[in-house]
Simulated assay, not measured.
Amino acid sequence: MTSAFDDLRPEPPRSPAVFLDKDGTLVENVPYNVDPAKLRFTPHAFDGLRALQAAGFKLVVVTNQPGIAFHFFDRASLTRLQRAMEARLAAEGIELAGFYACPHAPAAPRMAGCLCRKPAPGLLHQAAQALHLDLARSWMVGDILDDIEAGQRAGCRSVLLDVGNETVWRMSPLRTPHARCQDLLQAADHILAASCAAPSASALAQETE
């Protein structure tokens, strides 16, 4: 039973998140892959993600998946890959709070109204609404500048994994990352230091070795 006082209760605090691009950031970039057997996580991904999770960040994947629009695979195949990824992460003590994918093709005229394909911020907004996230305290980590723009358009800070996957370098204020790192462990170190949230990710990783 509810009362008039229920509406006066303060909203629970929103959680900070680290939004993660999938291909080239969380896992090695195998174009249009939906085969769990080919799933390989990027170097030091587990250590970086565990440190972020321990510091209170929700971990959310936001990914463009135009292979669905191109009919290279279907949503069910992507979901199977997602479940395999979640199982691998869970075995390492890591929980994904969410997985959000844009199925649209780039520059398709019929998709002119798409708000979810990065560099648009729609996936991050969807996640923030569903998972009760604080975008101003959140970060976007990706391997190309479209990821950086999506994060900053959503109001997040950003880290570019500078691993050679960005080739165009079309720069603008929205496409200028707050930091450049070589892997997810370095990214976690930067995020934790900037957020004053916890000991460095590298230190936490060494404690578990």
Rank of each mutant, 00 (worst) to 15 (best):
G151R: 09
R153P: 09
H104L: 01
L123E: 06
A112M: 06
H132I: 03
A101V: 07
L124C: 12
L123M: 15
L124H: 06
R157I: 00
Y100E: 03
I144T: 15
V141K: 02
L131N: 00
H125G: 04
L115M: 13
P103K: 04
H125R: 13
L135G: 03
L145R: 12
A136M: 09
L145E: 14
A150S: 15
A101R: 00
H132F: 02
L115E: 12
P119F: 13
R157A: 11
A101K: 01
S138Q: 09
G155D: 12
C102S: 03
A120T: 04
I144D: 10
R157K: 14
W139Y: 13
V141N: 06
C156Y: 11
V141S: 07
P121F: 06
C114D: 02
D143A: 08
G142W: 02
P106Y: 00
L131S: 01
P121Y: 08
Q152D: 08
C102W: 04
H125A: 05
D146R: 00
S138W: 10
L123T: 06
Q129Y: 07
H125V: 09
R153A: 15
A154R: 02
V141I: 15
P119A: 14
G155M: 11
G151K: 09
R110F: 02
C116F: 00
H125E: 09
E149L: 14
D143N: 11
S158Y: 10
M140C: 09
Q129I: 07
L133W: 13
A150T: 11
P106C: 06
G122F: 04
A150F: 10
R137C: 10
M140F: 08
C102H: 04
